[in-house]
Simulated scan of single mutants.
Amino acid sequence: MAEPVFFPFATSLDFGEVASISGGTLPEGVESTRRIDGIAALETAGPADLAYMDNPKYTDALAATKAGLCIVSPRFADRVPAGTVTLVSPAPYHAFAKIMARCFPSALKPESIFASQGVAPGAIVHATAVLEAGVTVDPGAVIGPGAEIGAGTVVASHAVIGPQVRIGRNCSIGAGSTIQASLIGNRVIIHPGARIGQDGFGFAMSPKGHMKVPQIGRVIIQDDVEIGANSTVDRGASRDTVIGEGTKIDNLVQIGHNCVIGRHCVICAQTGLAGSSTLEDFVVLGGQVGLAGHLTIGVGAQIAAQSGVAGDVPRGARYGGYPAQPALGWARETALLKTLVANRGKKPGASQG
């Protein structure tokens, strides 16, 4: 049985093109017309492959690599073996990403299973829906009444687009995802299984039972947002849930109703935002972070993985722990706790040797 190629190598590049695209610098005397025909990890790369390295943990792998060309930062340039050409870049990972995007464009976002435009047999598009030219709708997808979808957008199999939803141009709506009560901008990527615009968790609780509160807001997703597989974004209760342009949300993230997320935030997997939380621009939340409701995380703040945030975080701060606090204090408390545990039961003044 032949081994399938899921992401074909789209184009071969010569060393000069790689340097130009990445902004790196080749050593003098290197033949710029030499070509790369693949991209691989340091350990598996061969003479026709490109690799990159920017982490001290992989110094040994760099020293042993057989890659034809390797992108590295200046501090690792002298570790590249003699048989590998060094391409020095101040930001190797960004440079590598640019080359990957050029060589593997099909891996950038979910695509149509048929790779052809138009409405496929087996798709259901309501007569009142409006699809611009160049929209792709795969088998099993459902487009509801009054929905509007812009040119170049792909709606994958079994995705459901609810009534009156607006989706911009060149978006990718992953297989099995559902979208309702939402306005979505351009170049948005929604991965398979995501749920956008469902009820927020709103109940008026009492000793006699809990009364459901209608959730009448929307979800607003601005341009260039990416939402990972099986993540959920609840619609607002009486105002909108908003996700700002360029924000990247990992898999299995929960965004509660009325949350407002700023521009270019990064939210890692299994993080949960309770209702009415606000993230200002360029906030980073590590994996499994939990945010209480009705709080604000300031511009550029960073929260360490598995932290529990119970109050506002000032702009530019780095917090961690449970409950979350400034990272330096958290580290000191952790070190002190280890010392206290290690010394438990020892008599004062006893030898530590």
Score class of each variant (00 low, 15 high):
Phe76Ile: 03
Gly349Trp: 08
Ala115Val: 06
Glu111Gln: 15
Gly29Glu: 13
Gly122Ile: 09
Thr296Phe: 06
Thr25Ser: 14
Phe7Arg: 09
Ile243Phe: 14
Thr334Phe: 11
Ser177Cys: 11
Arg75Glu: 09
Thr65Val: 11
Asn186Tyr: 04
Tyr52Arg: 00
Ile243Cys: 06
Tyr52Ile: 00
Val30Ala: 12
Asp199His: 06
Ala48Val: 12
Cys70Ile: 12
Ser238Leu: 15
Phe76Lys: 02
Ile249Met: 13
Pro8Gly: 05
Ala156Trp: 01
Leu337Ala: 15
Leu183Val: 14
Ile167Gly: 03
Gly293Asn: 05
Gln288Thr: 10
Ala305Ser: 15
Glu280Met: 10
Asp49Gly: 09
Gly228Trp: 08
Gln215Arg: 04
Gly118Met: 06
Ala61Asp: 15
Val154Glu: 02
Ile243Ala: 07
Pro105Lys: 09
Thr271Pro: 03
Ser157Asp: 04
Val253Trp: 14
Ile124Asn: 10
Asp250Thr: 05
Arg79Trp: 02
Lys347Trp: 04
Ile184His: 07
Leu13Asp: 04
Leu87Gln: 03
Ala194Ile: 07
Ala292Leu: 10
Gly320Ser: 06
Thr241Lys: 13
Pro81Ala: 02
Glu31Asn: 14
Ser12Arg: 07
Gly349Tyr: 12
Leu42Asn: 12
Ser22Glu: 02
Arg34Thr: 08
Ser277His: 01
Ser73Asp: 11
Cys265His: 00
Arg263His: 15
Ala91Pro: 06
Ala91Asp: 15
Gly353Asp: 11
Glu132Ser: 08
Lys66Thr: 08
Ala51Arg: 00
Pro110Ser: 05
Ala133Asp: 14
Ser238His: 12
Thr296Gln: 12
Ile297Phe: 04
Phe76Val: 05
Ile143Trp: 13
Val72Tyr: 04
Pro323Ile: 01
Gln164Met: 07
Pro81His: 01
Pro56Lys: 13
Met53Lys: 10
Gly287Pro: 12
Ile21Pro: 05
Gln325Phe: 03
Asp281Gly: 07
Glu245Tyr: 12
Val72Ile: 01
